[in-house]
Nucleic acid binder design. Structure first.
Lengths: 337, 337
DNA sequence: TTGTAAGCGTTATCAC
DNA sequence: GTGATAACGCTTACAA
């Protein structure tokens, strides 16, 4: 790979002149410019962004730290991020933590070393370690999807508590009184928030005592296992509230295995839609989060921070969710008929 | 952010000594090391990878250029790439071209500037431009998912022609004689290959004349439109062969709209499974490509190239596909009953 | 065991 | 209009 020196030599000028041509800065003789451009294309010269970044302390690179790109919700978030970033000439490094604190810490360390201009973080845990780490090193960041309680940071997410509340309201209106919640890791804010919304909805109807919430992981396997456990309850629940799409899929499998038709035997509602693109025949009643917008707006916010060195107040952007009622939820059937 | 000089000053040594501590190279007095380590943690010092990369001409960063991370097939590829990369301490920048040549060229330019160590490329077109560009600049790369005909490059993909052949064979065995192919852009190798496999299967049964192949895009919309066109054929097809999952979903929508039940009225088979994680009740007969393995092996191959400077022969890794027969394909119903 | 000098590829600054 | 010089943060080679 040729350098600015090679180009300079070939064009019979100094590197500085080449630099000026590349960056369209300063005055330059028309003829000189032509010679330089000729040399550039002859050599297939491409400027070294590393050297540039070293000087400018700007890499035009962001990092997206999520739990798992394979989750369609995060896939869509990622697309929103990449679109917003590339619009402004930024590249995006992506990292999968699988909810592991260690992996998260490791990734953040590498990213800081690589001098990314900013980080979009879906925290694997609510502890302030990662936040503190980035802050100390003065790396701008935005937390997305999950809120971090008690810290003043930029955040973009949906109101999980409220979304869960809506879903449970819906079930209550249908007549359900035994609803089990199948959630993710208790240490993850969204998992906890969704259970909180569930409890609030029940409490408001004086059903606080009927609440049964299981914490597990945001995976199909976990959803499957939690559902199996919930089925052993007595009285048996008439509805499941899954805290995300993977858990819902796992629960549906467990129900099928147990020959319990949905929604006839048990209703199922969940957070996070499966992508429209993949659904021939949407079935699940869900609270949909605007994944693409979350990614996009978080990135916008981050990029704003980068240009505005002025450290404004931390902003919390809460995007609206949408309740979509489909066939997986119906009125419970009477037991003694 | 503090530099190696800051650490050196605080520890009362030279930057070189700090460097040695960080990299565990050369001899160093135990006490000095302790002092340096103390200074490092006190300052929260993180080495600047940019400066390092500038010297070593190694960024430990790869790029993944795909068409759309939102396609679950590519999502899984991406996960395979990231896993394999991070195992070896590499980061991954991801880019979505949406099958646009211009976007692809633009991205590659930026990536070369950023001195990525290698590129994993799903080419938006079969022309040799991108390949030539990378080659001239001596950036190692591996082409994945799609083959580039007539060029000697590292490639990892499945045998699209053969996969399509299998799907059509399956339909033929069920008794179908009017099968329409709904494919992607003719300029994209996989789209063309899949149609070729379709034609070969038909030709072997002496049905070459019945072949009707439509080229469009690898999107739901396109699948929808192509299916609508195909339905106007006379005689009407008894089966659709979709060249990828998005096209299949679009086709299924068109069929539902036309009140044509699958598979009773029309069978549908396709390339690329929808992710297991999203399917409560898998329905489509598919040829599954091992997406994760494609990503993983392509990355391995690329990383091998990076360590083995020895320019070995280009390798073409062809991974096996898997025919999965489900409910979307069945024997055609007799017209005159 | 530790330090000095030079250079990786750019560009801002100041001369000419 | 154009060029020499120094600096961004780090490490290899050499010296002490």
């Amino acid at each position: 790979m040729s350098t600015i020196h090679d180009v300079a030599k070939l064009a019979g000028v100094s590197p500085m002149t080449v630099s000026r041509v590349i960056n369209n800065s300063g005055y330059i003789h028309k003829e000189t410019r032509a010679r330089v451009e000729q040399a550039i294309s002859e050599l297939g010269y491409v400027p070294n962004a590393l050297a540039r970044s070293l000087r400018f302390k700007q890499t035009h690179t962001l990092a997206l730290v999520i739990t798992d790109i394979t989750n369609p919700y995060f896939t869509t978030v990622a697309r929103g991020v990449e679109d917003a970033a590339s619009e402004q000439g930024f590249s995006v490094i992506f990292c999968n933590t699988d909810e592991s604190r260690d992996d998260e810490a490791e990734y953040l360390n590498v990213l800081v070393q690589k001098q990314v201009d900013g980080v979009l973080l879906v925290p694997a845990h609510s502890s302030p370690d990662s936040i503190a780490f980035l802050r100390e090193r003065e790396v701008p960041f935005v937390v997305l999807d999950r809120r971090i309680p008690g810290t003043q940071v930029d955040m973009v997410h949906c109101d999980s508590e409220q979304g869960a509340y809506q879903l449970i309201q819906h079930l209550l209106e249908l007549g359900h009184r035994q609803i089990a919640a199948l959630s993710g890791p208790e240490a993850v804010m969204t998992a906890a928030d969704r259970v909180a919304g569930y409890r609030r909805a029940l409490a408001e109807r004086g059903l606080a005592d009927s609440a049964v919430a299981y914490f597990g992981e945001f995976t199909i396997d976990s959803g499957y296992r939690l559902a199996k456990r919930a089925l052993k309850l007595s009285p048996q629940p008439t509805a499941f509230f899954a805290a995300n799409n993977f858990i819902a899929v796992g629960a549906l499998r467990a129900l099928r295995e147990a020959n319990l038709p949905v929604p006839e035997a048990i209703s199922v509602v969940t957070f996070d839609d499966l992508p429209e693109s993949m659904l021939v025949d949407p079935f699940l009643t869900v609270v949909r989060q605007p994944a693409y917008e979350i990614g996009r707006q978080a990135t916008r916010l981050l990029l704003d921070r980068l240009s505005d060195k002025a450290a404004a107040e931390p902003r919390e952007i809460i995007l609206p969710t949408q309740l979509i009622i489909r066939r997986s939820s119906a009125a419970p059937q009477l037991k003694e008929t």
